[in-house]
Design a protein around this nucleic acid. Structure first.
Lengths: 240, 240
DNA sequence: GCAAAAGTGTTTTCCCTACACCCATGG
DNA sequence: CCATGGGTGTAGGGAAAACACTTTTGC
């Protein structure tokens, strides 16, 4: 009990799994931004971007500040807390508690990234440092779940897109085929999609030109709050 | 930047909003266990149970250890992380980062609780210490959401129950009327409910004796993983 | 005209809510 | 035999997946 309660030098770091859909055509996949450690411990392994929590900032400000060095902040379309990782020996030698985040970037532009960073498919991670591999998987699972019951797709998509481009983005993120037809129906019914009026040129082999769409609004919204056990019609949820 | 990065004495605490459905009949409501602060700062205000993270434990072990002093641990049917609260001045004077948890206790037995703790309806909180009020609301929202798409009801219910008793539990937790009929259908269809074979005696004014049920299993299971955008029939979600 | 890609209409299926009706008990 | 609460059957609605079919382009 004394050892448990003893005052100790507990460090607090923030880490982010920045996810985005990258790659051309068939190679398109959900990828994560990793950074190659240059010095011990665990030199050569790939780590999540992040760093020490500062004295005058909260965890979200901190991770945004630190990501600004790796990814252009304007590129970050969504940031949310995942969970705390606090196993005593997660960083050997000293006690470091980590607050992990999910960050999302849209799939069109490839932001400038430093030489020691790289995008890796989440399905083929390299040797990761510390517990960072499991943080990436948690981020992937959170993203997949929220794609279903929120409008989070806006954070992965380009500002404008055709339905088949959006289909590829959802397919890569979810890990299975998504039908463009049904995707459009679902997102339209929920009022998340809006035609820009423009069209994309047809490809070299012809085909009807595709209409361009955009997402309405760019903040996270829950679109499917009660899967079952809805409140009775007419009755509202009491605020408490 | 220097002030942000300066090494500082950052404390780390764990806090839990322990929720349960308490009270007889019409007074039944979702309540939270709070503890009255005896000494400054904020003496007299009501706080969540918790304390300092120890050097050799992770955050979940820590909150379980600390709750054991307030609530019998065997009563805790579910514990999960909510989020980190880290506003620099959330505890005036010194820097304390908090990992907040949701804890659940079943609604039958009233565990022994110390003199300075009390169950308060979440809809009528007293003056709370620090940011603990907003933590309670986050816990409530998480519980309400998960009651819909997981089997989390098991953590609030008694070991055995009639459907109308379970209906009262769900109603209190969700904040609106739930029909016993449909509740039974939904939980049965998902394979979460199982008749014990026994029946409860009828009340003083007669009525058919109610059948007794229990939940199958007592670990959290997600029962409604894809509200929409399900994988095509036949196709599985690729593990990555 | 033909292939290719996009978009629409329609069918089927499934699940949930709502409501009517039947069942078992105490007085 | 009637009031009271428990349980079941069923109808209606809504949303999503699947698929057939039409539209628009390049060659």
């Amino acid at each position: 009990m004394d050892t448990i309660n003893q005052v100790s030098q507990t460090g607090h770091e923030v880490l982010a799994a920045v996810l985005g859909v990258r790659g051309r055509d068939r190679e398109k996949s959900l990828r994560v931004l990793l950074w190659r450690r240059g010095r011990p411990p665990q030199a050569g392994r790939w780590a999540l971007p992040g760093g020490q929590l500062g004295a005058t900032e909260d965890v979200e400000s901190s991770i945004r500040r630190q990501l600004a060095e790796k990814v252009d902040v304007r590129q970050l379309t969504h940031v949310e807390q995942l969970s705390v990782f606090s196993a005593p020996e997660r960083v050997p030698g000293r006690r470091v508690v980590a607050t992990a985040f999910l960050g999302l970037v849209p799939c069109d532009v490839d932001p400038e990234i430093p030489d020691d960073t790289e995008w890796f498919p989440v399905s083929a991670l390299p040797e990761t440092a510390f517990d960072h591999g499991s943080i990436v998987l948690r981020a992937r699972d959170r993203l997949r779940a929220k794609l279903s019951y929120t409008n989070l797709g806006f954070a992965l998509a380009q500002p404008q897109f055709t339905m088949s481009a959006l289909r590829r983005v959802y397919s890569a993120a979810l890990g299975y085929r998504v039908s463009a037809t049904n995707l459009q129906r679902v997102l339209s019914r929920r009022g998340l999609l809006e035609p820009t009026g423009g069209t994309a040129p047809s490809g070299p082999s012809g085909g009807r030109p595709a209409a361009l769409f955009r997402f309405t609004g760019s903040g996270l919204r829950v679109t499917d709050p009660f899967a079952v056990l809805r409140p009775p019609s007419g009755e509202d949820v009491r605020s408490c």
